[in-house]
């Protein structure tokens, strides 16, 4: 119990408890740890291969990470609410193809991007409605929509393919261009990232996403519109996935009916490696973005070091399990530290 005895004068300011500082530090540390792993990995690679960090090298690194970062940010919001969206790979594929088809017919690039985003919003709404209205776990619902969207995509696209040659030059140039080493696409992703992080921290509805992931029943009793918030999280996830689809088209110029399949697993890995807890209520989009950076750069690091890329998947898996193990251990440590605090106050 943390109760003052009556003879103690009430203090003006409660000194920050050690426990709070500890918890703060741990969570900052979680993101810091990924950043350090990331930087060490880059440094080691650069030491082993001085060609790695040329201007083009950095640009490639950023370009590769951009799309995953974007989808990971959307996914984080959903995971924070104790849900998951497995349909992001399918959504990415279908929105990229839709934007491509429109551009192929001579459409305006800006309208194409808006189209991709709106299509993403549509699928996000569908997921959100199914999850928040039906009493079915998100894992199952979005596994279903994963197949449904992919199915629609396959029927619609068939064996057709869009290539860079079919697209306006300006669109393709934008996809590979940038301000010196920083691609335009990376700047867009960064803007989305920063805005989302700011929203989560400074807006009531953002905090409510954490609240309802932390304790859904309490969220209901606190009068939080649980369904509305879940719907919003899925819609946002769909929207940024649509944006990512358009960016995929700009970056690669090459889309077919298989685009984005299996992508959901990479996204979920990035989010979890980045410290967004799968059981909801905690984690940050910055962490998720760092997780995405880490996972994609492994793809570039291994070839640069002369290691066969067959190792990539295994290493991703190890990172994932490591991240979960670390989270678990840290959580236990923090819990016992907080308990000890209580005991000492007693």
């Amino acid at each position: 119990m943390t109760v003052t005895t009556p003879e103690q004068a009430p203090v003006a300011e409660v000194p920050k408890e050690g426990a709070t500082r500890l918890v703060d530090r741990v969570f900052k540390m979680r993101e810091l740890a990924i950043l350090i792993v990331f930087l060490v990995m880059i440094a080691v690679t650069q030491a082993g291969n001085s060609e790695f960090l040329t201007e083009q090298g950095i640009k490639d690194l950023l370009l590769n990470a951009t799309i995953l970062v974007l989808v990971a940010v959307g996914q984080s919001l959903v995971v924070i609410t104790r849900n998951v969206d497995l349909s992001v790979g399918s959504t990415l594929g279908i929105t990229a193809f839709a934007a491509g088809t429109y551009l192929q017919g001579g459409g305006d690039p800006v309208v194409a991007v808006v189209l991709a985003v709106l299509l993403g919003v549509g699928f996000g709404l569908l997921n959100g409605l199914l999850v928040s209205l039906g009493q079915v776990p998100a894992l199952v619902v979005t596994l279903g929509t994963l197949y449904i969207i992919r199915g629609i995509d396959s029927i619609w696209v068939g064996s057709r393919q869009i290539t860079a040659a079919d697209l306006p030059d300006g669109f393709v140039d934008f996809g590979s261009g940038g301000v010196s080493a920083v691609p335009y696409l990376a700047l867009i992703a960064l803007a989305v990232l920063v805005a989302t992080a700011y929203y989560l921290k400074h807006y009531g509805s953002g905090r409510e996403l954490y609240a309802l992931g932390s304790n859904p029943e309490a969220a209901r009793l606190a009068g939080i519109p649980v369904r509305k918030r879940i719907l919003a999280a899925y819609t946002f996830c769909g929207a940024v996935t649509g944006l990512a689809g358009a960016m995929y088209l700009a970056r690669f110029g090459n889309v077919d009916s298989g685009t984005g399949s299996g992508y959901e697993l990479t996204v979920v890995s990035a989010v979890v490696v980045g410290g967004v807890v799968f059981t909801g209520g905690s984690g940050s989009v910055y962490g998720a973005a760092l997780g995405a950076m880490l996972l994609t750069s492994i793809n570039s690091v291994l070839p640069a070091l002369g290691v066969s890329s067959v190792w990539v998947l295994a290493i991703n898996g190890i990172l994932l399990i490591l991240a979960i193990a670390v989270d678990r251990i840290v959580a236990l440590r923090v819990a016992s530290a907080l308990k000890k605090r209580n005991a000492r106050h007693a």
């Binding site: 119990m1 943390t2 109760v3 003052t4 009556p6 009430p10 203090v11 300011e13 409660v14 000194p15 920050k16 408890e17 426990a19 709070t20 918890v23 703060d24 923090v334 819990a335 907080l338 308990k339 605090r341 209580n342």
Partner: peptide, 25 residues
């Protein structure tokens, strides 16, 4: 929050997470 804590005459850090609080707290 601090003002409320003072009104209840308890010392709880407003920034501390609720996880790990005793039932009474």
């Amino acid at each position: 929050t601090l003002a409320l804590m003072r009104r209840l005459d308890v010392q709880l850090d407003p920034d501390r997470p609720a996880r790990g609080l005793s039932i009474a707290d």
